[in-house]
Design a protein around this nucleic acid. Structure first.
Lengths: 236, 236
DNA sequence: CGACGGGTTGAGCTACCTCAACCCTGGTGG
DNA sequence: CCACCAGGGTTGAGGTAGCTCAACCCGTCG
Protein backbone atom coordinates (compact mmCIF):
# COMPACT_ATOMS: atom_id res chain seq x y z
CA UNK A 1 0.00 0.00 0.00
CA UNK A 2 2.20 2.72 1.16
CA UNK A 3 5.00 2.32 3.43
CA UNK A 4 6.55 2.62 0.02
CA UNK A 5 6.63 6.08 1.40
CA UNK A 6 9.82 5.18 3.18
CA UNK A 7 11.53 3.87 0.10
CA UNK A 8 13.91 6.46 -1.18
CA UNK A 9 15.05 6.66 -4.75
CA UNK A 10 16.41 10.15 -4.64
CA UNK A 11 19.90 9.04 -3.74
CA UNK A 12 22.09 7.43 -6.35
CA UNK A 13 21.82 3.68 -6.32
CA UNK A 14 23.72 2.25 -3.44
CA UNK A 15 23.93 5.35 -1.35
CA UNK A 16 21.22 4.27 1.01
CA UNK A 17 21.29 0.56 0.43
CA UNK A 18 19.01 -0.19 3.34
CA UNK A 19 16.18 1.74 1.79
CA UNK A 20 14.87 -0.32 -1.07
CA UNK A 21 13.87 1.48 -4.17
CA UNK A 22 10.30 0.24 -4.33
CA UNK A 23 8.03 1.72 -6.95
CA UNK A 24 4.29 1.81 -6.82
CA UNK A 25 3.62 -0.07 -10.02
CA UNK A 26 0.73 -2.46 -9.95
CA UNK A 27 0.17 -5.42 -12.17
CA UNK A 28 -0.91 -4.14 -15.56
CA UNK A 29 -3.87 -6.49 -15.81
CA UNK A 30 -4.93 -5.30 -12.42
CA UNK A 31 -5.03 -1.77 -13.75
CA UNK A 32 -7.48 -2.84 -16.40
CA UNK A 33 -9.79 -4.35 -13.87
CA UNK A 34 -9.45 -1.44 -11.53
CA UNK A 35 -10.36 1.04 -14.24
CA UNK A 36 -13.78 -0.55 -14.40
CA UNK A 37 -14.13 -1.24 -10.70
CA UNK A 38 -16.82 0.54 -8.68
CA UNK A 39 -15.83 3.51 -6.56
CA UNK A 40 -16.59 3.86 -2.89
CA UNK A 41 -16.44 7.24 -1.19
CA UNK A 42 -15.46 7.48 2.46
CA UNK A 43 -15.41 10.51 4.67
CA UNK A 44 -12.64 11.83 6.84
CA UNK A 45 -12.11 9.55 9.85
CA UNK A 46 -14.37 6.88 8.39
CA UNK A 47 -13.05 3.32 8.43
CA UNK A 48 -12.63 1.56 5.11
CA UNK A 49 -12.42 -1.69 7.04
CA UNK A 50 -11.42 -2.94 10.47
CA UNK A 51 -9.08 -5.60 11.72
CA UNK A 52 -10.68 -9.05 11.83
CA UNK A 53 -13.38 -8.05 9.36
CA UNK A 54 -13.92 -10.66 6.73
CA UNK A 55 -11.60 -9.75 3.87
CA UNK A 56 -13.90 -9.20 0.93
CA UNK A 57 -12.14 -6.61 -1.19
CA UNK A 58 -8.87 -5.21 -2.32
CA UNK A 59 -8.83 -1.46 -2.75
CA UNK A 60 -6.93 1.12 -4.71
CA UNK A 61 -6.91 4.69 -3.50
CA UNK A 62 -8.09 7.10 -6.21
CA UNK A 63 -8.01 10.33 -4.22
CA UNK A 64 -7.52 11.27 -0.60
CA UNK A 65 -5.34 9.39 1.86
CA UNK A 66 -5.75 6.41 4.17
CA UNK A 67 -3.89 5.38 7.33
CA UNK A 68 -3.40 1.66 7.90
CA UNK A 69 -2.78 0.65 11.51
CA UNK A 70 -3.16 -1.75 14.37
CA UNK A 71 -4.18 -1.05 17.93
CA UNK A 72 -2.30 -2.93 20.62
CA UNK A 73 -4.03 -4.22 23.75
CA UNK A 74 -2.65 -1.38 25.84
CA UNK A 75 -4.12 1.16 23.46
CA UNK A 76 -0.95 2.09 21.64
CA UNK A 77 -1.32 2.40 17.91
CA UNK A 78 1.18 1.40 15.26
CA UNK A 79 0.55 2.85 11.84
CA UNK A 80 2.12 0.53 9.29
CA UNK A 81 1.62 2.82 6.34
CA UNK A 82 -0.16 5.66 4.60
CA UNK A 83 -1.93 4.89 1.35
CA UNK A 84 -2.09 7.57 -1.32
CA UNK A 85 -3.67 7.67 -4.77
CA UNK A 86 -2.36 4.71 -6.73
CA UNK A 87 -1.59 2.62 -3.65
CA UNK A 88 -3.25 -0.71 -3.00
CA UNK A 89 -4.79 -1.70 0.31
CA UNK A 90 -5.76 -5.12 1.59
CA UNK A 91 -3.61 -7.00 -0.86
CA UNK A 92 -2.10 -9.65 1.39
CA UNK A 93 -3.55 -13.14 1.57
CA UNK A 94 -5.58 -13.71 4.72
CA UNK A 95 -9.21 -14.48 5.30
CA UNK A 96 -9.63 -11.45 7.53
CA UNK A 97 -8.06 -8.02 7.35
CA UNK A 98 -5.07 -7.72 9.56
CA UNK A 99 -5.37 -3.96 10.05
CA UNK A 100 -7.68 -1.04 10.36
CA UNK A 101 -7.83 1.34 7.42
CA UNK A 102 -9.07 4.82 8.14
CA UNK A 103 -9.44 7.79 5.82
CA UNK A 104 -7.33 10.78 6.85
CA UNK A 105 -9.42 13.01 4.59
CA UNK A 106 -12.36 12.52 2.23
CA UNK A 107 -11.26 9.64 0.04
CA UNK A 108 -12.35 7.65 -2.96
CA UNK A 109 -11.26 4.06 -3.50
CA UNK A 110 -11.89 1.53 -6.23
CA UNK A 111 -13.03 -1.84 -4.91
CA UNK A 112 -12.28 -5.24 -6.40
CA UNK A 113 -13.75 -8.34 -4.84
CA UNK A 114 -11.07 -10.69 -3.66
CA UNK A 115 -12.99 -13.59 -5.19
CA UNK A 116 -12.64 -11.88 -8.56
CA UNK A 117 -8.90 -11.50 -8.20
CA UNK A 118 -8.58 -15.11 -7.21
CA UNK A 119 -10.69 -16.15 -10.17
CA UNK A 120 -8.51 -14.23 -12.60
CA UNK A 121 -5.35 -15.63 -11.04
CA UNK A 122 -6.62 -19.18 -11.52
CA UNK A 123 -7.13 -18.53 -15.20
CA UNK A 124 -4.10 -16.43 -15.91
CA UNK A 125 -0.84 -17.55 -14.31
CA UNK A 126 0.82 -14.24 -15.11
CA UNK A 127 -1.74 -12.51 -13.00
CA UNK A 128 -0.90 -14.70 -10.03
CA UNK A 129 2.74 -13.74 -10.41
CA UNK A 130 1.73 -10.09 -10.50
CA UNK A 131 -0.05 -10.51 -7.20
CA UNK A 132 3.09 -12.12 -5.86
CA UNK A 133 5.16 -9.19 -7.10
CA UNK A 134 2.78 -6.70 -5.55
CA UNK A 135 2.93 -8.35 -2.11
CA UNK A 136 6.69 -8.52 -2.42
CA UNK A 137 6.68 -4.75 -2.78
CA UNK A 138 4.61 -4.49 0.36
CA UNK A 139 7.11 -6.70 2.10
CA UNK A 140 9.98 -4.51 0.99
CA UNK A 141 8.09 -1.48 2.28
CA UNK A 142 7.53 -3.13 5.64
CA UNK A 143 11.23 -3.91 5.90
CA UNK A 144 12.06 -0.33 5.00
CA UNK A 145 9.87 0.88 7.82
CA UNK A 146 11.49 -1.61 10.14
CA UNK A 147 14.93 -0.25 9.32
CA UNK A 148 13.71 3.32 9.48
CA UNK A 149 12.37 2.93 13.01
CA UNK A 150 14.77 0.42 14.52
CA UNK A 151 17.24 2.03 16.86
CA UNK A 152 17.42 5.36 15.05
CA UNK A 153 17.18 8.85 16.48
CA UNK A 154 14.09 11.02 16.24
CA UNK A 155 15.83 13.28 13.73
CA UNK A 156 16.82 10.36 11.53
CA UNK A 157 13.29 9.00 11.57
CA UNK A 158 11.59 12.28 10.77
CA UNK A 159 14.02 13.25 8.01
CA UNK A 160 13.76 9.77 6.49
CA UNK A 161 10.02 10.19 6.53
CA UNK A 162 10.17 13.60 4.87
CA UNK A 163 12.52 12.33 2.17
CA UNK A 164 10.22 9.42 1.54
CA UNK A 165 7.26 11.75 1.11
CA UNK A 166 9.33 13.89 -1.22
CA UNK A 167 10.24 10.83 -3.23
CA UNK A 168 6.61 9.88 -3.47
CA UNK A 169 5.77 13.29 -4.84
CA UNK A 170 8.48 12.90 -7.42
CA UNK A 171 7.04 9.57 -8.54
CA UNK A 172 3.66 11.23 -8.95
CA UNK A 173 5.09 14.19 -10.88
CA UNK A 174 4.41 16.59 -8.08
CA UNK A 175 6.86 19.09 -6.59
CA UNK A 176 9.30 17.04 -4.48
CA UNK A 177 10.15 20.12 -2.41
CA UNK A 178 6.64 20.89 -1.23
CA UNK A 179 4.99 18.24 0.88
CA UNK A 180 1.34 18.09 1.75
CA UNK A 181 1.00 16.06 4.93
CA UNK A 182 -2.61 15.13 5.51
CA UNK A 183 -1.76 13.29 8.72
CA UNK A 184 -1.59 14.74 12.22
CA UNK A 185 1.55 14.83 14.37
CA UNK A 186 0.03 11.96 16.25
CA UNK A 187 -0.23 9.94 13.04
CA UNK A 188 3.39 10.63 12.21
CA UNK A 189 4.40 9.67 15.73
CA UNK A 190 2.49 6.41 15.62
CA UNK A 191 4.09 5.66 12.27
CA UNK A 192 7.67 6.41 13.32
CA UNK A 193 7.41 5.23 16.91
CA UNK A 194 7.70 8.67 18.51
CA UNK A 195 5.46 10.83 20.68
CA UNK A 196 3.69 13.87 19.26
CA UNK A 197 5.90 16.11 21.37
CA UNK A 198 9.07 14.61 19.96
CA UNK A 199 7.74 14.89 16.41
CA UNK A 200 6.82 18.50 17.01
CA UNK A 201 10.17 19.35 18.59
CA UNK A 202 12.01 17.67 15.74
CA UNK A 203 10.06 19.70 13.18
CA UNK A 204 10.86 22.96 14.92
CA UNK A 205 14.50 21.95 15.25
CA UNK A 206 14.64 21.33 11.50
CA UNK A 207 12.92 24.64 10.92
CA UNK A 208 15.45 26.49 13.10
CA UNK A 209 18.24 24.80 11.15
CA UNK A 210 16.65 26.14 7.96
CA UNK A 211 16.33 22.63 6.61
CA UNK A 212 12.57 22.93 6.23
CA UNK A 213 9.87 25.58 6.27
CA UNK A 214 6.50 25.13 7.90
CA UNK A 215 4.24 27.53 6.03
CA UNK A 216 1.12 25.78 7.30
CA UNK A 217 0.79 22.80 9.54
CA UNK A 218 0.04 20.45 6.69
CA UNK A 219 2.51 22.01 4.30
CA UNK A 220 6.25 21.44 4.53
CA UNK A 221 8.81 23.04 2.23
CA UNK A 222 12.11 21.24 1.96
CA UNK A 223 14.80 23.91 1.94
CA UNK A 224 18.00 21.90 2.05
CA UNK A 225 17.70 18.44 0.55
CA UNK A 226 21.39 17.65 0.95
CA UNK A 227 21.43 18.29 4.64
CA UNK A 228 18.13 16.48 4.99
CA UNK A 229 19.80 13.43 3.50
CA UNK A 230 22.81 13.85 5.73
CA UNK A 231 20.55 13.95 8.76
CA UNK A 232 18.60 10.92 7.58
CA UNK A 233 21.82 8.95 7.50
CA UNK A 234 22.79 9.86 11.00
CA UNK A 235 24.83 13.06 10.73
CA UNK A 236 24.84 15.18 13.90
CA UNK B 1 11.41 -16.96 6.30
CA UNK B 2 11.36 -16.51 9.93
CA UNK B 3 10.22 -13.52 11.69
CA UNK B 4 7.35 -15.93 12.01
CA UNK B 5 9.22 -16.32 15.23
CA UNK B 6 7.39 -13.36 16.57
CA UNK B 7 3.97 -14.66 15.71
CA UNK B 8 2.33 -16.04 18.79
CA UNK B 9 -0.39 -18.62 18.71
CA UNK B 10 -0.15 -19.67 22.29
CA UNK B 11 -2.78 -17.23 23.44
CA UNK B 12 -6.42 -17.87 22.69
CA UNK B 13 -7.50 -16.25 19.47
CA UNK B 14 -7.95 -12.56 19.93
CA UNK B 15 -5.91 -12.17 23.08
CA UNK B 16 -2.93 -10.69 21.29
CA UNK B 17 -4.63 -9.37 18.19
CA UNK B 18 -1.54 -7.49 17.09
CA UNK B 19 0.46 -10.67 16.79
CA UNK B 20 -0.76 -12.48 13.75
CA UNK B 21 -1.01 -16.19 13.98
CA UNK B 22 1.22 -17.04 11.05
CA UNK B 23 2.08 -20.67 10.49
CA UNK B 24 5.09 -21.91 8.66
CA UNK B 25 3.26 -23.93 6.05
CA UNK B 26 4.67 -23.79 2.59
CA UNK B 27 2.83 -24.45 -0.61
CA UNK B 28 2.32 -28.17 -0.90
CA UNK B 29 3.56 -28.33 -4.47
CA UNK B 30 6.62 -26.48 -3.34
CA UNK B 31 7.26 -29.21 -0.81
CA UNK B 32 7.32 -31.73 -3.58
CA UNK B 33 9.92 -29.81 -5.48
CA UNK B 34 11.95 -29.14 -2.40
CA UNK B 35 12.08 -32.80 -1.47
CA UNK B 36 14.05 -33.41 -4.65
CA UNK B 37 16.06 -30.20 -4.56
CA UNK B 38 19.82 -30.33 -4.09
CA UNK B 39 21.25 -29.63 -0.66
CA UNK B 40 23.92 -27.09 0.05
CA UNK B 41 25.91 -27.19 3.27
CA UNK B 42 27.21 -24.01 4.83
CA UNK B 43 29.43 -23.59 7.82
CA UNK B 44 28.93 -21.47 10.87
CA UNK B 45 29.33 -17.77 9.99
CA UNK B 46 29.34 -18.52 6.28
CA UNK B 47 27.09 -16.38 4.09
CA UNK B 48 24.36 -18.11 2.13
CA UNK B 49 24.08 -14.97 0.01
CA UNK B 50 24.69 -11.24 0.31
CA UNK B 51 22.65 -8.16 -0.31
CA UNK B 52 22.72 -7.05 -3.95
CA UNK B 53 23.80 -10.49 -5.15
CA UNK B 54 21.86 -11.60 -8.16
CA UNK B 55 18.89 -13.53 -6.82
CA UNK B 56 19.26 -16.99 -8.29
CA UNK B 57 17.70 -19.30 -5.73
CA UNK B 58 15.09 -19.69 -3.09
CA UNK B 59 16.16 -21.77 -0.11
CA UNK B 60 14.56 -23.89 2.56
CA UNK B 61 16.47 -24.52 5.75
CA UNK B 62 16.77 -28.26 6.47
CA UNK B 63 18.92 -28.10 9.58
CA UNK B 64 20.81 -25.42 11.45
CA UNK B 65 19.79 -21.77 11.64
CA UNK B 66 20.28 -18.67 9.52
CA UNK B 67 20.19 -14.96 10.39
CA UNK B 68 18.80 -12.61 7.75
CA UNK B 69 19.90 -8.99 8.10
CA UNK B 70 20.87 -5.68 6.60
CA UNK B 71 23.82 -3.48 7.44
CA UNK B 72 23.13 0.25 7.52
CA UNK B 73 25.68 2.77 6.25
CA UNK B 74 26.71 3.67 9.78
CA UNK B 75 27.50 0.04 10.52
CA UNK B 76 24.44 -0.76 12.56
CA UNK B 77 22.83 -4.05 11.76
CA UNK B 78 19.14 -4.86 11.68
CA UNK B 79 18.30 -8.54 11.73
CA UNK B 80 14.93 -9.00 10.09
CA UNK B 81 14.55 -12.62 11.02
CA UNK B 82 15.96 -15.98 11.99
CA UNK B 83 15.32 -18.91 9.67
CA UNK B 84 14.96 -22.38 11.17
CA UNK B 85 14.35 -25.78 9.62
CA UNK B 86 11.27 -25.55 7.44
CA UNK B 87 11.59 -21.81 6.86
CA UNK B 88 12.02 -20.33 3.41
CA UNK B 89 14.63 -17.72 2.54
CA UNK B 90 14.84 -15.45 -0.47
CA UNK B 91 11.21 -15.80 -1.39
CA UNK B 92 10.32 -12.23 -2.23
CA UNK B 93 10.32 -10.99 -5.82
CA UNK B 94 13.35 -8.87 -6.64
CA UNK B 95 16.15 -9.36 -9.07
CA UNK B 96 18.74 -9.06 -6.32
CA UNK B 97 18.64 -10.26 -2.73
CA UNK B 98 17.64 -7.51 -0.38
CA UNK B 99 19.48 -8.97 2.62
CA UNK B 100 22.46 -10.88 3.83
CA UNK B 101 21.84 -14.42 5.03
CA UNK B 102 24.41 -15.91 7.37
CA UNK B 103 24.49 -19.28 9.06
CA UNK B 104 24.48 -19.06 12.85
CA UNK B 105 25.66 -22.67 13.03
CA UNK B 106 26.46 -25.40 10.53
CA UNK B 107 23.45 -25.45 8.28
CA UNK B 108 21.98 -27.39 5.38
CA UNK B 109 19.59 -25.77 2.92
CA UNK B 110 17.72 -27.03 -0.10
CA UNK B 111 18.10 -24.83 -3.16
CA UNK B 112 15.51 -24.21 -5.86
CA UNK B 113 16.39 -22.03 -8.81
CA UNK B 114 14.10 -19.08 -9.02
CA UNK B 115 13.71 -19.63 -12.75
CA UNK B 116 12.27 -23.04 -11.95
CA UNK B 117 9.73 -21.61 -9.54
CA UNK B 118 8.73 -19.04 -12.09
CA UNK B 119 8.39 -21.69 -14.74
CA UNK B 120 6.12 -23.80 -12.59
CA UNK B 121 4.03 -20.78 -11.68
CA UNK B 122 3.48 -19.98 -15.33
CA UNK B 123 2.14 -23.46 -15.94
CA UNK B 124 0.17 -23.94 -12.77
CA UNK B 125 -1.89 -20.97 -11.59
CA UNK B 126 -2.41 -22.57 -8.19
CA UNK B 127 1.30 -22.55 -7.67
CA UNK B 128 1.47 -18.82 -8.33
CA UNK B 129 -1.19 -18.31 -5.71
CA UNK B 130 0.84 -20.41 -3.30
CA UNK B 131 3.81 -18.15 -3.82
CA UNK B 132 1.53 -15.22 -3.17
CA UNK B 133 0.33 -16.84 0.05
CA UNK B 134 3.88 -17.53 1.15
CA UNK B 135 5.01 -13.94 0.66
CA UNK B 136 1.90 -12.78 2.45
CA UNK B 137 3.06 -14.80 5.45
CA UNK B 138 6.42 -13.09 5.27
CA UNK B 139 4.66 -9.78 5.18
CA UNK B 140 2.64 -10.68 8.25
CA UNK B 141 5.85 -11.70 10.00
CA UNK B 142 7.50 -8.39 9.13
CA UNK B 143 4.52 -6.51 10.50
CA UNK B 144 4.67 -8.59 13.67
CA UNK B 145 8.28 -7.63 14.14
CA UNK B 146 7.40 -4.01 13.50
CA UNK B 147 4.80 -4.11 16.25
CA UNK B 148 7.08 -6.03 18.57
CA UNK B 149 9.85 -3.46 18.34
CA UNK B 150 7.92 -0.24 17.90
CA UNK B 151 7.87 1.80 21.06
CA UNK B 152 7.95 -1.13 23.47
CA UNK B 153 10.12 -1.64 26.52
CA UNK B 154 13.12 -3.94 26.60
CA UNK B 155 11.24 -6.41 28.79
CA UNK B 156 8.28 -6.48 26.43
CA UNK B 157 10.53 -7.08 23.46
CA UNK B 158 12.56 -9.86 25.04
CA UNK B 159 9.55 -11.69 26.48
CA UNK B 160 7.71 -11.40 23.17
CA UNK B 161 10.77 -12.89 21.52
CA UNK B 162 10.94 -15.77 23.99
CA UNK B 163 7.25 -16.53 23.60
CA UNK B 164 7.67 -16.51 19.84
CA UNK B 165 10.52 -19.00 20.08
CA UNK B 166 8.43 -21.15 22.38
CA UNK B 167 5.57 -21.04 19.93
CA UNK B 168 7.91 -22.07 17.16
CA UNK B 169 9.01 -25.08 19.18
CA UNK B 170 5.40 -26.01 19.71
CA UNK B 171 4.76 -25.93 15.97
CA UNK B 172 7.70 -28.22 15.44
CA UNK B 173 6.59 -30.64 18.16
CA UNK B 174 9.47 -29.72 20.42
CA UNK B 175 9.25 -28.80 24.08
CA UNK B 176 7.81 -25.28 24.20
CA UNK B 177 9.33 -24.72 27.63
CA UNK B 178 12.93 -25.37 26.66
CA UNK B 179 14.42 -23.02 24.12
CA UNK B 180 17.62 -23.53 22.25
CA UNK B 181 18.90 -20.12 21.14
CA UNK B 182 21.66 -20.50 18.57
CA UNK B 183 22.08 -16.74 18.28
CA UNK B 184 24.32 -14.51 20.36
CA UNK B 185 23.10 -11.70 22.60
CA UNK B 186 24.27 -9.37 19.90
CA UNK B 187 22.04 -11.13 17.37
CA UNK B 188 19.06 -10.84 19.67
CA UNK B 189 19.84 -7.18 20.24
CA UNK B 190 20.08 -6.43 16.54
CA UNK B 191 16.82 -8.24 16.01
CA UNK B 192 14.89 -6.47 18.77
CA UNK B 193 16.58 -3.09 18.49
CA UNK B 194 18.42 -3.27 21.83
CA UNK B 195 22.07 -3.33 22.90
CA UNK B 196 23.72 -6.53 24.09
CA UNK B 197 23.94 -5.09 27.58
CA UNK B 198 20.25 -4.39 27.73
CA UNK B 199 19.44 -7.87 26.41
CA UNK B 200 21.73 -9.40 29.00
CA UNK B 201 20.31 -7.32 31.84
CA UNK B 202 16.79 -8.19 30.80
CA UNK B 203 17.61 -11.89 30.83
CA UNK B 204 19.06 -11.71 34.32
CA UNK B 205 16.10 -9.69 35.51
CA UNK B 206 13.76 -12.38 34.20
CA UNK B 207 15.92 -15.00 35.86
CA UNK B 208 15.79 -13.19 39.21
CA UNK B 209 12.03 -12.98 38.87
CA UNK B 210 12.00 -16.78 38.40
CA UNK B 211 10.29 -16.35 35.04
CA UNK B 212 13.06 -18.13 33.19
CA UNK B 213 16.10 -20.30 33.93
CA UNK B 214 19.42 -19.98 32.16
CA UNK B 215 21.01 -23.40 32.46
CA UNK B 216 23.48 -22.67 29.69
CA UNK B 217 23.89 -19.60 27.58
CA UNK B 218 22.10 -21.11 24.61
CA UNK B 219 19.46 -22.88 26.65
CA UNK B 220 16.51 -21.09 28.22
CA UNK B 221 13.87 -22.77 30.35
CA UNK B 222 10.56 -20.97 30.58
CA UNK B 223 9.41 -21.26 34.21
CA UNK B 224 6.31 -19.10 34.28
CA UNK B 225 4.53 -18.82 30.97
CA UNK B 226 1.64 -16.82 32.37
CA UNK B 227 3.82 -14.11 33.75
CA UNK B 228 5.90 -14.17 30.61
CA UNK B 229 2.76 -13.38 28.67
CA UNK B 230 1.79 -10.67 31.12
CA UNK B 231 5.18 -9.08 30.70
CA UNK B 232 4.99 -9.34 26.92
CA UNK B 233 1.77 -7.35 27.01
CA UNK B 234 3.21 -4.56 29.06
CA UNK B 235 2.60 -5.54 32.70
CA UNK B 236 5.07 -3.95 35.17
C1' DC C 1 -18.25 33.74 22.99
C1' DG C 2 -16.57 29.36 24.82
C1' DA C 3 -15.16 24.77 23.94
C1' DC C 4 -12.41 21.68 21.67
C1' DG C 5 -8.86 19.47 18.94
C1' DG C 6 -4.41 19.84 17.42
C1' DG C 7 0.09 21.89 17.95
C1' DT C 8 4.00 23.89 20.47
C1' DT C 9 7.02 24.54 24.30
C1' DG C 10 9.07 23.76 28.86
C1' DA C 11 10.73 21.04 33.03
C1' DG C 12 11.81 16.88 34.98
C1' DC C 13 12.27 11.82 34.82
C1' DT C 14 13.60 7.41 33.34
C1' DA C 15 14.75 3.67 30.41
C1' DC C 16 18.06 2.66 27.73
C1' DC C 17 22.70 3.54 25.80
C1' DT C 18 27.71 4.14 26.52
C1' DC C 19 31.83 3.07 28.44
C1' DA C 20 34.46 0.22 31.18
C1' DA C 21 35.72 -3.51 34.13
C1' DC C 22 35.40 -8.17 34.90
C1' DC C 23 34.11 -13.20 34.23
C1' DC C 24 33.85 -17.54 31.83
C1' DT C 25 34.74 -20.81 28.26
C1' DG C 26 37.08 -22.88 24.61
C1' DG C 27 40.91 -23.08 21.78
C1' DT C 28 45.96 -22.76 20.96
C1' DG C 29 50.59 -23.28 21.66
C1' DG C 30 54.65 -23.51 24.35
C1' DC D 1 49.48 -29.68 31.21
C1' DC D 2 48.94 -25.24 31.91
C1' DA D 3 49.34 -20.32 30.33
C1' DC D 4 47.53 -17.39 27.46
C1' DC D 5 44.28 -15.30 24.58
C1' DA D 6 39.97 -14.12 22.22
C1' DG D 7 35.17 -13.90 21.94
C1' DG D 8 31.01 -13.74 24.20
C1' DG D 9 28.54 -12.60 28.41
C1' DT D 10 27.60 -10.10 32.71
C1' DT D 11 27.60 -6.26 35.77
C1' DG D 12 28.24 -1.49 37.27
C1' DA D 13 28.33 3.72 36.92
C1' DG D 14 27.07 7.61 34.56
C1' DG D 15 25.01 10.20 30.60
C1' DT D 16 21.24 11.36 27.52
C1' DA D 17 17.49 11.06 24.16
C1' DG D 18 13.08 10.88 24.24
C1' DC D 19 8.94 10.16 27.27
C1' DT D 20 5.67 12.24 30.67
C1' DC D 21 3.18 15.77 32.49
C1' DA D 22 1.60 20.24 32.20
C1' DA D 23 0.88 24.78 30.50
C1' DC D 24 -0.20 27.47 26.77
C1' DC D 25 -1.38 28.86 21.88
C1' DC D 26 -4.28 28.96 17.90
C1' DG D 27 -7.92 28.03 14.55
C1' DT D 28 -12.47 26.11 14.00
C1' DC D 29 -16.98 25.20 15.05
C1' DG D 30 -21.16 25.36 17.66
Amino acid sequence: MLTHALASARSPAGTIPYLARTENHQPRDLDGHLAAAPIRTIEERELLFSEHDRRTHMYRVESGAVAVYKIMPDGRRQIVGFAYPGDLIGLEAHDTYRFNAQAMRPTRVRCVRWATLQHIARQDPEFGLKLYDAVSLELAAAHDLLLATGRRSATERVTTFLLAMSRRNERCDRDPLVLDLPMTRSDIGDFLGLTIETVSRTFTKLRRQKVIDLAQITRVHLRDLDQLEQLAEGAP
